[in-house]
Design a protein around this nucleic acid. Structure first.
Lengths: 160, 160
DNA sequence: CTCGCACTTCAAGTGGACTTGAAATCGAGA
DNA sequence: TCTCGATTTCAAGTCCACTTGAAGTGCGAG
């Protein structure tokens, strides 16, 4: 039976070798056969890796994927596996979605915003509203420029 | 003028002291006055912290909040600040939302799934479909239980 | 036999947003 | 004065999903 090297599997699945070894180390992939120390995979490993990759892309955590794949009796049908995950995951997803929608709405409202201070946008909402007692201009000055150990850099939240 | 200790500010804003010091260190809060070494805050700092907290809750990164709050001329209206952020943030949010929706749909489809193997759910989709050539049962066995340096624990993805 | 490449292992680094811990200092009450 | 609690600083730890690096091993070609 033909087997594949880790390099070949990685190429076919579109995943780095280091990720494959990592998956093995955390129990997401079974340890494959070895030929004089070298891992030899069967072709279905590629498919399994594609599943893992797809699930990751959808935002599942590795631990959840592991649950889905291995934490059941071997012949447990997918239906039952999904049920186990859905109970705790669906509410979390719903929360995530409403957070994201709220963020989007805030941003879009901000594009038509007439607030004087940014505080109003967050604390009162800056949709078209009766502009009653307009408060003073921003009070808090910018922090002095500084350089500390923790240096924030990138911009994207959440694997974006 | 009355000032507040860091403990009092933390209590009122519902944020840990350590977080407040951290915000100061990364330029999200200006350095306050000191009385013999101790930070003394004015009341508006509480409001500013609430804004930061609200923005975090919505999923904004600290760096983005810093942009919003400080990276403009002092009298720049919120409208203009939002515009700067919206251009790069809105697409990211949309992507996040569709990922989350896709995850939700997959989970809900899984609850009515008739697939034999979990691979089908991901790679073919497990909506009611013509059950043509049903493939064999799961081929890949679970990895042997193992204990490695990297030990996955929690469950929630993405600050959930 | 040597070269070069693919592979092996293990340790340590990355990023974001903090938290935790240790050791020192301040202020108020008994 | 003594003690207690609140505060200070700085370094290091946490979580997740990997990546990177260093040092060593296997194999085929020339």
């Amino acid at each position: 039976m033909e087997t594949l090297s880790i390099g070949e599997v990685a190429r076919r699945a579109g995943i780095r070798q280091s990720a494959i070894r990592y998956y093995e180390s955390v129990g997401l992939l079974p340890e494959p056969e070895r030929a004089s120390g070298w891992r030899r995979y069967t072709a279905d490993t590629v498919e399994r890796l594609q599943v893992i990759h797809a699930a990751r892309d959808l935002g599942f955590a590795l631990e959840e994927i592991r649950t889905l794949l291995y934490e059941f009796e071997p012949n447990t049908p997918p239906l039952e596996r999904w049920r186990a995950l859905a109970a705790e995951k669906l509410p979390a997803i719903d929360a995530l979605i409403s957070r994201a929608m709220a963020m989007k709405h805030l941003l879009m409202a901000g594009l038509k915003c007439q607030c004087t201070r940014i505080e109003e946008c967050f604390l009162e909402g800056c949709d078209p509203k009766p502009r009653s007692r307009a408060r003073a201009l921003p009070i808090i000055a910018a922090p002095a420029p500084q350089q500390v150990g923790a240096s924030p850099r990138s911009g994207a939240t959440c694997q974006g």
